[in-house]
Nucleic acid binder design. Structure first.
Length: 518
RNA sequence: GGCCCCAUCGUCUAGUGGUCUAGGACACCGGCCUUUCACGCCGGCAACACGGGUUCGAGUCCCGUUGGGGUCACCA
């Protein structure tokens, strides 16, 4: 049974790079009919773990990445919170101590620091002298009487090398001489990450450790721990990290200001910002950031588009396939085809994926995604649910591929506001409505609209065409004025669709109001 | 700095010694369509980091250089 895991720390947000790692773990497990486990790498000093974990779990659920064992679902290998596994970790430390693979060290931090500096001054790699390694109980007792406290360190090999096979990088070799006697347990008894990690992976029967390449150089010490404990080694696969837009640096959630100088990133961000503001979503917190998954949910992206994009960030099937359904991803994914080099996050390519999927989404499925945004913006409060659905449906149908994220429905306030509250864009009023002759044409066309029956797009268009014929004018001479008068601005849906959605009464009232304003 | 990893268009990538005058996608530029916007269609620009080998032949194998990155905690 293949078992993979993703082990987020409860930080309150899901990083895009982390999601990709989780996705690859998930795909690998699903493909092999295995299991995907979520383990929470919390430390005892973190507070509000539950609260900080929720957005992460929500994020995974939204993305459709489900876990077979972990928080909320439990499982036979629990607990799934690292902080609740202390006794297991302590037992492992004891075993390591008993077998001579670890030792109690009584060195003071300053003493260790002094050794480090001496090594540096002599330009030689630092290796701890083990001066304060307790060889006997008498040593320990004496030093403790002096007020010293012990940490537990790994007694790492100092010759030879550590070799292991990486599913992505091939055979890897590290010299033991480069390794340190890492601390695995603090003086207060709490255990450190690498120890806990190895023990938990073993306890969870993890077969494949698929993680970011940052951990590659941590692997030797983990191999040492695992082997010393008599564990069978998991298969390792170290994924390249996700880089910043236009650079090879690792993508970081802390560099939003820097990324906003990148035009494509800025475009993505500002689009989201417009929507977030319209629905009153906080935009100052740490999570409103395109590096964090929550951003995309807030703005109304399709999770399948994000996942599809992330899949291709470091992995490809062949020279042309780009769109994958979930089933296809599971069928085709292989670690062998994961790239070795970092892939930088391209905001516009993600946007293109989103756009493509949104356009392909049938109206029946699109409308339910749009309606919540309208509600959150506080629009259409006077409409009954069915009326609102219907209105949104009409707009979405007419908007077609203009709506690229669910939040884009908020580009059309003109269809939700009262006629007398329509906001008129001054520049457009100036250019289109105050244009010589426009008002007079508009007045004449208004009188014809007022009598039109039925008031649908095709009939309105036929009316306008005959009007053009009679007046001997080009369509451009009236349609811009008509658009500004009825929608307040110069861009929007097809004119006839827009008028049909507004209906005769609103259309006429809005034209009258516009003419009065002139 | 030590150790380790990586290196094809601006970006994601295909390419596993000859079919590569290097293919696809996004972006960009030009044109068409058009009541605005968006879409769509057609066309275009654009890459094997450099230097040595190996080989009849190298983007593809080897070495070096350069560049980029990761990692070196009583963080995770």
């Amino acid at each position: 049974m293949i078992r993979t895991r993703f082990a987020p720390s409860p930080t309150g947000y899901l990083h895009i790079g982390g999601v990709r790692t989780a996705l690859f773990n998930w795909l690998f497990a699903r493909q092999h009919g295995g299991q995907f486990i979520l383990r929470i790498d919390d430390t005892d000093q973190q507070r509000n773990v539950t609260e900080a974990l929720q957005p992460i779990l929500d994020g995974f659920r939204w993305l459709g990445i489900d876990w077979d064992e972990g928080p909320d679902v439990g499982g036979p290998y629990g607990p799934y919170f690292q902080s609740q596994r202390q006794t297991r970790h302590e037992a492992a430390v004891k075993q390591l101590l008993d077998s001579g693979h670890a030792y109690r060290d009584y060195a003071l931090p300053e003493e260790l620091q002094a050794e480090r500096e001496a090594a540096e001054a002599a330009k030689r790699p630092f290796t701890y002298s083990r001066r304060w390694m307790a060889q006997t109980e008498a040593d320990a007792a004496r030093w403790e009487a002096d007020g010293r406290a012990a940490v537990v360190r790994l007694k790492m090999p100092r010759t030879g090398s550590c070799r292991f096979h990486d599913q992505i990088r091939g055979d890897v070799e590290f010299q033991w001489s480069q390794e340190q006697d890492h601390v695995i347990q603090r003086a207060d008894g709490t255990c450190l990450y690498h120890l806990a990690n190895v023990v938990d992976d073993h306890d969870f029967a993890i077969t494949h450790v698929i993680r970011a390449v940052e951990h590659l150089s941590n692997t030797p010490r983990q191999v040492f721990i695992a082997q010393s404990l008599g564990y069978e080694l998991p298969q390792y696969a170290h994924l390249p990290y996700v880089a910043e837009p236009g650079s090879a640096n690792k993508l970081s959630k802390r560099k939003l200001d820097k990324y906003l100088k990148h035009p494509d990133f800025k475009k993505l961000y500002e689009h989201g910002l417009r929507i977030a503001r319209a629905i009153g979503h906080a935009t100052t917190g740490e999570t409103f950031n395109p590096v964090i998954v929550d951003f995309y949910r807030t703005v109304g992206y399709l999770p399948s588009a994000l996942v599809n994009y992330l899949l291709l960030l470091g992995w490809s099937l062949d020279d042309k396939t780009e769109q994958f359904t979930r089933a296809e991803m599971i069928e085709h994914f292989t670690l062998e085809r994961v790239n070795k080099s970092p892939a930088s996050f391209d905001p516009l390519k993600l946007w293109a994926f989103q756009q493509r999927e949104m356009v392909a989404l049938p109206l029946d499925q699109k409308v339910p995604l749009l309606v919540p945004f309208v509600r959150q913006a506080g629009w259409g409060a006077a409409l009954r649910p069915a009326e609102l659905d219907d209105r949104v449906r009409q707009i979405a149908g007419a908007a077609g591929d203009r709506i690229k994220a669910a939040g884009d429905i908020l580009d059309y306030p003109e269809f939700f506001c009262a006629d007398e509250q329509l906001v008129m864009e001054p520049k457009d009023v100036e250019k289109r409505l105050r244009k010589p002759g426009a008002a007079e044409l508009l007045r004449r066309f208004r009188d014809m609209l007022a009598e039109l029956e039925p008031f649908d797009a095709a009939t309105v268009e036929a009316l306008l065409r005959s009007f053009l014929e009679r007046e001997q004018i080009q369509i451009g001479e009236i349609i811009h004025a008509l658009r500004v008068a009825t929608t307040g601005k110069s861009v929007g849906l097809g004119m006839f669709d827009a008028l049909a959605i507004l209906g005769r009464q609103s259309t006429v009232q809005r034209i009258d109001r516009a003419l009065q304003l002139l």
